[in-house]
Every structure is written in C-alpha cells, then in structure tokens.
Design a protein around this nucleic acid. Sequence first.
DNA 1: TCTCCCCCAGTAACCGTTTACAGAAACTGG
DNA 2: CCAGTTTCTGTAAACGGTTACTGGGGGAGA
Lengths: 356, 356
Amino acid sequence: MPRKPAEQAGKAGREARTTIRDVATRAGVSVATVSRVLAGNYPTAPATRTKVLRAVKDLDYVVNVHARALAGVSQKTVAILTREVITPFYAHIIQGVEQQAAQEGRLCLVCTTGADPDRELAYVKMMREQGADAVITVGGVQETPEYRKQLAHYAQALDSAGSRLVLCGRPGLGPDVPALVVHYDNEGGAYSATSHVLSAGHERVMFLGGAPGFTTSDPRVRGYERAMADRGLKPLLYLGAFGIHFGYATIKRLLQQGPLPCTGIVASDDGCAAGAVKALREAGLRVPDDVSIVGYDDVPMAAHMWPPLTTVHIPAEELGRTAVRMALQAQRGMPERETILGTHVVVRDSVARRVA
Amino acid sequence: MPRKPAEQAGKAGREARTTIRDVATRAGVSVATVSRVLAGNYPTAPATRTKVLRAVKDLDYVVNVHARALAGVSQKTVAILTREVITPFYAHIIQGVEQQAAQEGRLCLVCTTGADPDRELAYVKMMREQGADAVITVGGVQETPEYRKQLAHYAQALDSAGSRLVLCGRPGLGPDVPALVVHYDNEGGAYSATSHVLSAGHERVMFLGGAPGFTTSDPRVRGYERAMADRGLKPLLYLGAFGIHFGYATIKRLLQQGPLPCTGIVASDDGCAAGAVKALREAGLRVPDDVSIVGYDDVPMAAHMWPPLTTVHIPAEELGRTAVRMALQAQRGMPERETILGTHVVVRDSVARRVA
DNA sequence: TCTCCCCCAGTAACCGTTTACAGAAACTGG
DNA sequence: CCAGTTTCTGTAAACGGTTACTGGGGGAGA
C-alpha cells in the first residue's frame, strides 16, 4: 500500500479536512446525493435535502475547490499583471478588472511585475498552470525581440487552452499573435494636448518626461511632435522618466542654467507636471501666467492641485472592464480583436493665452 | 462505465489538455519519474532528466495546479478583501500585501466589497473554499452584531483549517476570536494633528468629514475630541462622509451661511481636506493665512497640492506587508496576536500660527 | 566470481469531487 | 393487483497529479 492510512494522529498533525464523505455518512446518504443537493441542479427529495443540509451545517463543511475543479467544474479566475498598484492609472485599471470579473463570477488575481519583462513572463506561465481564463497584462515594459517571441508563444498556448491573453493599455504584438488588445489613443491625446497649448498662442513648447522605449511614452512623444510639425514648429524634448521627481528635478536644473527655453510644457504625465509646477513656483514663476502646462492621465488630484491641471483623460477603469469583457466574449466565440478607447483633454486652469 | 472515454472528438470539443501521462509516454518513462524530475527534489539520472525535459518542452506541458493541490502540494494564496482599490490608502495596502505575498511565494487575490458586510462575508466564505492561507480584510464596514458573529465564526473555521483571518486597519473582534489584527494608531494620529493646530494658537478648530459608525472614522473623532478637551475647548463636529466632495460641499455651504465658525480644520482625510481648501479658495480665503488645515492619510498628492498639506501619515503599505507576514508567522506557530503601527503628522505648509 | 548495497525507476493508492449509468422505490393508469 | 413510468439514490470511474514502497541493475568489496 503506497500511502500510510493517515493514522498518525499526532498532536502536530492537523486533523483532516471534513470531506463530502463525512457529510454523506452523517446524513446517511451517498456522496453523490450530497454533491447533487449542494449543486442544486438535480431533483432531490425534500427530506433528503434537509438531512444533507443539516449535516453540512453541523460539520461546517466546505467544498474543496481543487477537487471540484479536477472533476470538471472550476472556479474561474482572471489575472491582471501590472507594474505596480499604487499609481492611480494602474489602480483604476485593477479596479475595472476586478469589478467586471466579479460581475462575471470570476475571482481576480493581481500580480505586480515591477516592469520586469522576465517576471511578467514568469507570471503568464504561472497563470497558464492556474487555468486563469483571462490574463491581462497592463502597461509598458521594455520589449526585446525575445520577450515578444515568448509572449506570442504564451498567447498561443493560452488560446488553445481556452484562455486569452489581453494586452491592456499597450499596443498589439502583430496580427499573427492571438492576443487581444485594449488600448487608448495615446498619440491622439498628446496631439490634442499639444494643440491645446499651441492654439493658446504658444510657440516654444517643450515635451517633458517619459521613458524612451516604453510603449506608453513613445506615442505621446510622437503626438507632440506631430502637432508641432503641423504648425512648422521645432520640437523641444526633455525625456528621461515619468513621475514627480523627474519633472521637478529637470525644471529646477533648467531654471538654474538660465531662463526657461519655452512658455508651454506638455508633460508625459500628471506627476511630472506636478513636479514641474512645484519647481516653477519655487523659482517665482506663475502657472499659467508665466508658463502654461498640460499633464497626462487625469489623475484624481489633478483637479485639486493649484492651479487645477489641464490634462488628458484616460478611461482607465473602462480599460480594465473592457479587457475582461473582451476576453470572456472571445471565449464565447466573439472575435473582437482590438478596441481603442478614446482620450480627451479636460480643460482646467493651467494653460493661459500667451501674451506677446 | 460512468464516464464516456472522451472520444467525441467533435470539432467543437476542445482537445484534452496534455497531461503528465503524455509526457511520460513520449519520454519513455513512468509518470512518477516525470513528476520527480519536475519537482527536482529527488535523485534522477541525468539522461532521464534530459529526456523528460525534452518531452515537456516538445509537448508544451504545464502542470495542473488543481490536481497537484489535490495530491498534497498546493500553490498557496493570500486574499485581500477591500472596499475598493483606487483610493490611495487601499491601493498602498494592496501593494504591500501583494509584494509580501509574492516574496513568500504566494499569489494574491483581490476582492472588492464596496463596504458591504454581506459581500465581505461571502468572500470570506469563498476564500475558505479556495484554501487561501491568509484572508485579509481591510478598512471599516458598518459592524452589526450579526456581522461580528459571522466573522468570528469564519475566523474560527479558517484557523482550524490552518489559515488566518487578518483584520487590517481596523480594530479587533475581541480576545476569544482567533483573528489577527494589524492596526495603526488612528486616535493618536488625530490627537497629534489636532494638537499641532492647537499649538499654533488656534482655539476654534473644527473636525470635518468622516462617516459615523465606521471604524476608521470614530477613533479620529475621539482623538480630536480628546485633544480639544485637554485644552478645555469645545469640539465642533461636521461629520458626514469621507472624500473630496463632502469637504468641498460642506465648507461651501458653511461659507454661504456666514463666516466660517473656526480658524482651523482637522479633516477626516486628505481628500476631504483638499475639497475644503478648494471651497476656501473659491471664497477668497487663503490657506494657511486665513484658515489652517490638516489632513489625514498622507496621500501622495498631499505633498504637491497648494499649499503642501500638513497631514497624518499612515504606513499603509507596511500595514499590508505586516498583515501577510503575521498570518504566515502564525501558521508557523508564532502567536503574535496584534500589532499597532505608529502614525505621525508630517508638517508641511497648511498650518500657520494664528495671528490674534 | 559472488554478495551486498546503492541508486533510480516503476507501480499503484490516494487526494475530494462530479456525474454517467443502473437500480430501487413510489406512483400511475388500466 | 400488475405493468409501466417517473423520481430519486447509489455505485464507481475519472479528473491529473504525488509519493510510499518495491524491484531491478550495476558497481564495489571480498
């Protein structure tokens, strides 16, 4: 006999979990009956039903999801792979994913990757083992050819296992990879934001922030450049990183070197814009009177900074909801491959008409 | 024979997942050998090992976690039950939980309850089925006696199944309930914040915001009241809700009714403070020159509002990390029942000395 | 050359459910 | 009162792994 009959009963040994067998014994019925009563999708005599329910309550029985899954009915799961969770953009996406998942009767697994492609890949693999029916990867990572190849492979594998890989808030991997894409119009947003500043009469407008190579960064730069080019203006790029710190440090350094080379700033994100505003103010410059600025992302606090920040709104929560909706629809045969959600600039008080 | 031998092979039928048996066949070994090679915790001849790995790769085999769990080794999971995810406080806790969980080799399940006790209870039950080894509930809900009784029951049940229930950022359920508690000094923070305003010379100081009955609200009110009482001052309470909207609306309404009945405000949370500042500014009042204000939570943006907001810092991420650390230690027999993390007021520029 | 070991690999029980099939009990109608 | 239904309930295979125990083969020591 391969296994000891679990009779060690030492004080250290956890007593065995109560199983459906225990319930059956106590109720004086078979395990099949218990299972059927609990599932509720099969005719059962009221008396039997009562006995079983009674036994379940007495024993405080709970099903074992693993056994249940193995036997055929599994609690489905949606996984979201994100760089981190505290940035409002990610938090909103997570919230959207969780809510839509819950609505569709799924549990939501959150994994942070720290923008590390290898960790992301490892998680995708793990999710495949878990049998998640949707794996949503959000945000940009630095994409190497090897990374793309791997991801394409996993997309394929998930697909043939009945799951889906969804790229959320990032561009697709090409038509041959069976991954779904939910994206927003990154370039268009930057184009609109830049145009907004430009049409207030500014001509020297810089683009501040963003991490080159990241898929959330490059299109914004492109949108900015396109808007500038459309008016015959030369771009003025200060790239480096996202976030408050970079915005603050960069503007501060520039200010120390001499007068600011522009009267308008298109920031890569609201944090960056906030940093810039802080540096500007510390140097005695007024926003928007002396320099106008637009952010990107429409973080909640953007509306409550001083001045309220004009910025580009991204429908983050909707992005998350759409991701799981698409994945689940795809399982049911709806072949919606890609959806792009719109962005728009929300005008507040950080941009002013340039006085010549 | 109870089950059809899966020979339907219709075009609609998903082909069966490749199993360890397939791998064994292809590699020309037994399933035991495959399992052992994959587990890596048992001596294996290099040649065999190679063959198996080869077959695994060729077939693109992945283990089935459910089968594995059923057989004894399960991928453990930590679950966090939270009201929502976008509020920075919750987002930070989630991040802390996820990171610590990952570090301990656990996956992290996130469930939002919308502050609905019934949903929370339902999730706790579900997590018991899932076999999560830690269930962390964060934030306050309106606690009815029935709710407490249920939660105590689940705590007991989880405990005897080798899991733990952790109450995070909320008070305990009493000494007889085997739930762990990770909390922060809510009342102390409010006391310090209030004292900070008071010692700047203010005497008419209001408490603004907070939802009565919530466990994150009442202690803050108590701390405020205690600080006021310690100086023989009468409390001035404007309770109602957390968040920007309530702060804005309440101050605006007050201002329409006449002059503000105070020169200092202790807000229930940073959002509320931000709303108040906005209303104040719109009415032409200056912060902190005309009225001083302190927030609570130390949300990221608090440092970048104008003026930078003096507020109470809560170690939210650390709260999350501690929650999973405690749960896991408790499993290993360490009986740490409760830990209270400290809070402190971070002084910025929204409180000024009262000029008489 | 013959034992005795040691190292690896194979066999098969078991984890806790679900469910196809079969059989029993309770009705129904004639 | 009996055959034909209908309505439940029980039996046992299957899900896909893990691992205790067993056994075979090769190397080492005598």
